[in-house]
Design a protein around this nucleic acid. Structure first.
Length: 293
DNA sequence: ACGGAAACCTGCTGGC
DNA sequence: TGCCAGCAGGTTTCCG
């Protein structure tokens, strides 16, 4: 579900409620919530108890909360998966069907992690300096590329990396090791804005077209962030349980058979990696079928 | 290296 | 009403 604008909306909400707060108690309430933390949910909660949260950080679709530490800096790392959500409330959400983790904070409020499909999760990691970013990043996230809003995102470097790939451009845009934060919605929206067909070979795209696509991705994600993200249903809400409003601004995603907002031609749905791509057949010319070169 | 598919999950919708 | 197929914002892993 959540891509960069949704995760950033969550980050802002969490930062407001968590910065400076100390964890009084923490509970892992479902075996899958800490599956990426090899020592298990009990260990994760033990490490969290009594610790003070300094801030809430994000790279792409990942969040982390650096914790006050005497020696080695470390953080709670979170990924929302397809359906994860953080909530901050005055009362615990015990009894909620999808509650996977919660923590009592020193101001009496509760931090809860809800996740219908359990693809999201929490883990623990050590922080190391990131030279490009001038900040510390969890070790496990050093293989995740900077997102388009980070200091370390260099347009020319990323465009060159993309043009070295021989995959279809959409597949490359979704590769979090090339550029992070882009998911199925914003990839389709960016490609439509740049008039690029998702099946174009990245290798054969002019540098200018790749840069235009990345610019479009940054632009559409900035606009979506301004609307609080895209909510199709209550699987994506902010930390106060409120939906985002960008769905009404989507140009292609989910608009199969509807008219292109630019040229009026119908939006088509293509099958792609066990999911869907939405394109305007007229604005986004399909590539010629020739041997890749 | 690349493309395809399946796996990990729950839950909703639409067709019969 | 029930059942079943198909679908969903992500990531990982295997296979050819």
């Amino acid at each position: 579900m959540p891509e960069l604008p949704e995760v950033e909306t969550v980050r802002q909400g969490l930062a407001h409620h968590l910065a400076g707060r100390t964890v009084v108690t923490a509970s892992a309430l479902h075996p899958r919530v800490a599956r990426r933390h090899l020592l298990g949910g009990v260990d994760l909660c033990d490490r969290l108890t009594g610790r003070r949260c300094l801030s809430v950080e994000r790279r792409g679709k990942y969040l982390w909360m650096p914790l006050e530490s005497q020696d080695e800096p470390e953080a709670l790392v979170a990924h929302l998966g397809m359906s994860g959500q953080f909530r901050v409330t005055d009362q615990p959400l015990r009894g909620h069907r999808h509650l996977r983790f919660d923590a009592l904070l020193d101001d009496g409020r509760w931090l809860s992690f809800l996740d219908q499909r359990t693809f999201g999760g929490l883990s623990w990691d050590v922080l190391k300096p990131d030279l490009l970013e001038l900040r510390e990043v969890p070790v496990a996230l050093r293989q995740i590329a900077p997102d388009p809003f980070e200091r370390g995102f260099d347009m020319d470097t990323v465009a060159a990396t993309i043009r070295r790939r021989r995959s279809e451009i959409k597949r490359v845009l979704l590769d979090q090791q090339v550029v992070s934060g882009i998911g199925n919605i914003y990839a389709d929206e960016a490609l439509w804005r740049a008039r690029v067909h998702p099946e174009r070979s990245a290798h054969r795209m002019p540098s200018k077209a790749v840069v235009a696509t990345l610019d479009a991705a940054r632009e559409v994600m900035a606009e979506a962030l301004g609307q609080g993200g895209t909510s199709f249903d209550d699987l994506y809400v902010n930390v106060n349980g409120e939906s985002g409003y960008f769905e009404r601004s989507l140009a292609v995603y989910g608009r199969q058979d509807q008219a292109c907002r630019r040229c009026g031609a119908p939006i088509r749905r293509l099958h792609f990696m066990n999911r869907s791509s939405f394109v305007c057949q007229r604005c986004q010319r399909p590539p010629r079928r020739t041997p890749s070169g």
